[in-house]
């Protein structure tokens, strides 16, 4: 599971850097939107679209509004991949 989290965070880093396009992005479980320059509400829409496409999963609006940080985003990705 630890490997899987590391792999997911590595993919998320690539997705964030492509969408935000402001150089390297540092991500950890504790990272929030306030920690990443350019992660605003509009960017968040594109991030969700890209994450759903990359992992071939779909979230619900109820799921994404309660994410407090990247760790909860990853929990949700893992949960979707397992179901």
């Amino acid at each position: 599971m630890i490997m899987e989290r590391n792999q997911i965070i590595s993919w998320l880093k690539e997705i964030f850097e492509e969408i935000i396009d402001e150089g390297p992005v540092l991500l950890s479980d504790e990272t929030t939107a306030e920690d990443v320059d350019g992660w605003d509400s509009l960017t968040n829409i594109q991030l969700v679209v890209s994450i759903e496409k990359h992992f071939n999963i779909r979230f619900t609006s109820e799921e994404i509004i309660v994410w407090k940080n990247v760790g909860e985003m990853i929990d949700c990705i893992i949960s979707r991949k397992e179901n």
């Binding site: 968040n44 969700v48 679209v49 779909r58 979230f59 619900t60 609006s61 799921e63 994404i64």
Partner: peptide, 9 residues
């Protein structure tokens, strides 16, 4: 071609 209902896209 694709729907992303969580973010209304």
């Amino acid at each position: 071609s694709d729907l992303f209902e969580a973010v209304n896209v």
